[in-house]
């Protein structure tokens, strides 16, 4: 970066150029900030609510109870021969982390407009830190699941954890990346379409029913199974269930397709996000 005087400049501010003006390395420079954001989220949740972290446990438990009653007892949907409570809990926990990541990153721009208007830091630090703070909630929920799983494993014989259990970190990363990718796409679009915010929560709800959360993929009629190929979350939930409970319809090919689309969504999201972050302050 030399100019006519042969000087070295540390930083050059230029007009927005092209679509690929992205700097992921800045995230690393600002890792302390990400850490502090995560810690802030956690501390403020812990301090603000009476139930504190207990809330992380009550929410999925209640949802699972409701699902067990409605889809298990009333609608009598199949559960691949698993105890319904465990079946729904596994689905809810795998889905929730993804859904939380998406919902909580979807208002990055609008929700932080005040800070973004006053000081520069890489905007991606905000959604990335949200995804990491949600990991704490996921951890607590996963422990809950694990304890209940142990109970069933000891007293019921229908559960067959698979070696695929060791794929858990990859599955979790995939959920996080998918949630982040979709979340930052939505948050970029909400700077232009403010009414999109209302659709997100609703859309995520609908999406859950298009994902094998309350029903096993195996229960779908053969002619509808192709739909699962379009939904990158379907193989993730099925793989999660297969790894811990030993049932589920997962093959490597489907999973690889979903991994590839996850990466594409993230890349697209980051490009869109970086484009919006440069002009966003002029439009609010």
């Amino acid at each position: 970066m030399n100019n006519a005087h042969g000087q070295k400049w540390d930083k050059i501010i230029r007009p927005r150029t092209g679509w690929f003006d992205i700097h992921p390395e800045e995230l690393w420079e600002y890792r302390d900030l990400i850490g502090l954001f995560v810690w802030r989220d956690f501390v403020s949740i812990y301090k603000q609510t009476i139930l504190g972290p207990l809330w992380y446990i009550i929410q999925p438990l209640l949802t699972t109870v409701v699902f067990t009653v409605i889809f298990g007892k009333v609608a009598k949907l199949p559960t691949d021969g698993l105890p319904p409570f465990l079946f729904y809990l596994s689905g809810v926990i795998a889905w929730r982390y993804f859904a939380d990541c998406l919902n909580n990153t979807a208002n990055t721009f609008v929700g932080n407009a005040h800070i973004f208007g006053k000081v520069y830091f890489p905007r991606l630090t905000v959604p990335v830190s949200v995804v990491i703070s949600n990991l704490i909630g996921f951890g607590i929920q996963f422990l809950l699941f694990f304890v209940i799983l142990l109970y069933y494993y000891t007293y019921a014989t229908v559960i067959h954890p698979q070696p695929a259990i060791f794929l858990l970190p990859i599955l979790v990363i995939q959920m996080a990346v998918l949630g982040l990718g979709f979340g930052i796409i939505v948050s970029s679009l909400t700077t232009r379409y403010s009414d999109l915010t209302h659709l997100v929560g609703f859309g995520v709800q609908l999406w859950m029913f298009a994902t094998p959360v309350v029903y096993p993929a195996s229960s779908l009629p053969e002619k509808w199974k192709w739909i699962l190929l379009l939904n990158p979350m379907a193989p993730v939930v099925e793989a999660f269930r297969y790894a811990f409970l030993g049932t589920g319809m997962i093959n490597l090919q489907n999973w690889l397709i979903s991994l590839a689309s996850t990466v594409c969504i993230l890349i697209f999201g980051v490009i869109l996000f970086s484009r919006v972050e440069k002009s966003f302050m002029d439009t609010v």
Binding site: W9, I12, V119
Partner: peptide, 25 residues
């Protein structure tokens, strides 16, 4: 706002040497 990188300029350039901190608030 441009010097603080909160928003991008439409034309032109700004060059800096060293770390910048801005305090708009």
């Amino acid at each position: 706002k441009i010097l603080s990188q909160v928003t991008a300029p439409s034309k032109g350039e700004v060059r800096f040497k060293g770390r910048i901190a801005s305090l708009l608030e």
